[in-house]
Design a protein around this nucleic acid. Sequence first.
DNA 1: TCATTAATTCACCATTATGTTAATTAACAT
DNA 2: ATGTTAATTAACATAATGGTGAATTAATGA
Lengths: 108, 108
Amino acid sequence: MSNLCTTFAALSNETRFAIVEKLLNEGELSAGSFQDMGGVSPPAISRHLKILKDAGVVEQRVNKQRRMYSVRPEAVQSIGAWSMSYRDFWQKSLNRLEIMLQKESERK
Amino acid sequence: MSNLCTTFAALSNETRFAIVEKLLNEGELSAGSFQDMGGVSPPAISRHLKILKDAGVVEQRVNKQRRMYSVRPEAVQSIGAWSMSYRDFWQKSLNRLEIMLQKESERK
DNA sequence: TCATTAATTCACCATTATGTTAATTAACAT
DNA sequence: ATGTTAATTAACATAATGGTGAATTAATGA
C-alpha cells in the first residue's frame, strides 16, 4: 500500500481518528488515557494504537510501566502536502463555483 | 462517521486512491477510463466509484451513455484544511527535529 | 515474595469490504 | 427492431476489520 494510502487507512476509523485528535490537542499520552473514549475496551484501544504506529501516524516511547504515544508530525504534514499539491485545482474550482453561485443569486 | 473520517475511508483503498489521482491529473473521466488500472473488473470499478461518490469525494454527471466522474474540490480542500489546522504543531515539531539532527551531526 | 497496575497478546466471533461472474438497464446506431 | 457499447446491479465467495473476555507480560510497591 502506498504510504499516504496507509495513513488514510489508519485515520479511516472513528476511534483511531478520535485518538489522533486527542493526541494532537493534548500532546503525548499514555495508552490508558484513551480508556474512557466511547466505551471501547483496553484490548481494542491497544490494537488501534498498534495500527496507528504501524502506519507511522503515532510513535511510542516507554516510560516505566507506561507506554506513551504521540503523533508523528510528518504524518499530518504529508497529508497537507498532498492536498496542497492539488491546490491549483481545488482553488480554481471553488472560485468558479463561487462565481457561478453569485451570478445565480444576481439573476433572481 | 464524521465527515473527514468518511473521506479518509474513501481514500484508504489503493484502487480508489489511484482513481482519484487519475481524476485529479486528467480531469473529468468516464467510468470506463479506469478499466485498465491494475486488473480490476468493471463491476469492481463501479463499486469503488459509488463509494467515492457516497463519501463526497467525486461527483457524477451523465452524458449520453457515459457517466462522467470528477473530483469534488471541497473534499481535497477539507483534507488540507484539517492538516493546516494543526500546522503549528507539526511545523514546530519538525523544526525541533531538524535542529536536533543538526546538533547530532556537529557533535560527530 | 506477592498482590497490583498497565498494557498487550490470544482465541474467538460478527460484520464489513472487496472481488468475481452472470444478468440487467439504458443509450446508440444501423 | 436489433445488435452493440457503457455501466450498473445481483448473487455469491473470501479476506480483512473490529470487537470481546481470558490469559499473559512486565514494572511497581507493600
